[in-house]
């Protein structure tokens, strides 16, 4: 095995690349400019998809934390998955803010505005950055996993509260374009947007699988290194004892 790739991830990665290329071609060239938004509508083919995958990633973290804490399903794999998904989620959430900002500048005239969805996303990002910082604190594996799982849940429980409080506070973001009775966009635009969702979902899956394997390898190597060091020290002690006796 050369790295963390397997046939599954190669197929997954290939599909992700193809759909992503399709999204880019459809989004940047095939689709017409919008009547209202002009060229800027092209960001709609990636921005909501990235944002959704960020939210899905944090949902996976919360679920995996819960499964780890529940004694009957306790397994270090859930802990690994929670951490890995949060990390990928942080990447997606950051990109959500960046692409949103890039769209907001020409549309609203400002890079940042205290709009409900923007603020919620920013707080979500801060919550999970804290979670990742908590995970990075070294410690005994089991207690670190429990600590992280509870920390992840505390953060996840906060998400709906943040959502409602910020929503009451401000609302300026345009409503969801897709999830309406009659979607606002049609034809090739809708196809581009849906393809974007597929592409970023595949990218998320690919990243999580690879990152999971990397994390798994890293912890195993760490354990092994610890055991080797322990065995060496024991051998030294035995030698010393022999010399003494």
């Amino acid at each position: 095995m050369k790295g963390t790739a397997t046939t599954l991830t190669r197929v997954l990665g290939f599909c992700a690349l193809v759909t992503l290329a399709g999204t880019v071609v459809l989004g940047l060239w095939t689709t017409p400019p919008d009547v209202v938004q002009g060229e800027l509508v092209r960001l709609i083919y990636i921005h909501p998809a990235i944002a959704t995958m960020g939210e899905v990633a944090f949902g996976v973290t919360a679920l995996a934390s819960l499964l780890y804490l529940w004694r009957r399903t306790r397994d270090r794999r859930w802990d690994l998955l929670a951490g890995v998904s949060a990390e990928v989620g942080v990447v997606f959430a950051s990109l959500t803010l960046v692409t949103g900002s890039i769209w907001g500048r020409p549309t609203w005239g400002v890079w940042w505005t205290w709009d409900a969805r923007l603020t919620t996303t920013a707080l979500l990002l801060a919550l999970f950055l804290g979670y990742l910082a908590l995970r990075r604190v070294p410690g005994e594996a089991g207690s670190r996993a429990t600590r992280s799982a509870i920390g992840g849940l505390v953060a996840a429980v906060d998400v709906p509260i943040v959502h409602y409080s910020v929503n009451w506070w401000r609302t300026l973001h345009q409503g969801s374009t897709l999830l309406r009775r009659k979607p606002l966009i049609h034809g090739v635009q809708l196809e581009a947007m849906l393809l974007g969702f597929v592409a970023f979902a595949l990218i998320y899956a690919w990243l999580v699988v690879h990152r999971y394997r990397v994390e798994d390898l890293a912890t195993r190597l760490e354990d092994r290194g610890f055991e080797t060091a322990l065995a060496e020290r024991r051998a030294e002690a035995d030698e010393l004892l022999e010399v003494v006796s």
């Binding site: 804290g130 908590l134 604190v137 509870i150 505390v154």
Partner: peptide, 25 residues
Amino acid sequence: LSAGLRVRETLLPLLLLPVAAPVLL
């Protein structure tokens, strides 16, 4: 959660402030 950790002074504000943001609001 952060009590036994060596980095608790810096970790606690990072963890608590975003969670407490809705309270502030």
